[in-house]
Amino acid sequence: MDEKLYKPFCISVGEIIKEMSDIDVVGMDSLEEERHELTSMGVSSIITFAGARKGRLLLDMEPGLALSMAGAVLGEEYGDVKDPMVLSLVAEVNNIISGNAITGINNELLMDLRLAPPVVFAGRDVVISIPRLRSLSSWGETEYGRIRINIAWEGGGS
């Protein structure tokens, strides 16, 4: 596993969330292989990219964390993760995390990866499947709930 393709995202999650909402994320230091299906913890955002290689980044968290982040960043209390502002915030956080990490990878590994806009969703018993792509997940904890980043790269042994 080429760490350079995974670590930047794990590092980015903690930094960005701390910077934006002052919430501490602990524990995102190891990566584990994920199965082809993940069960969403409540709110999930997917950003995909193409270029020299293709891939997918999934940011997934418990509703309590999404609501707390929205409250801290936007200055208002939100009661439901399906509120468009809460969903938009999770999407924007994923956008910044992925954008920063991908820019670093582009600069360091001289790739030309471009991101599609984020997709974000919340629902009941949501399961996400990425067919035929191996992925690694890193888990983190905050005082408001858990968070996970899942990173998948297409083609050639990751």
Partner: peptide, 19 residues
């Protein structure tokens, strides 16, 4: 260029796919 697909299964799902 297109990016890899994701399949999402669930009930009463709210999506935002664009700004």
């Amino acid at each position: 260029d297109i990016t890899p697909p994701s399949i999402i299964f669930g009930k009463d799902v709210y999506f935002i796919i664009s700004s």
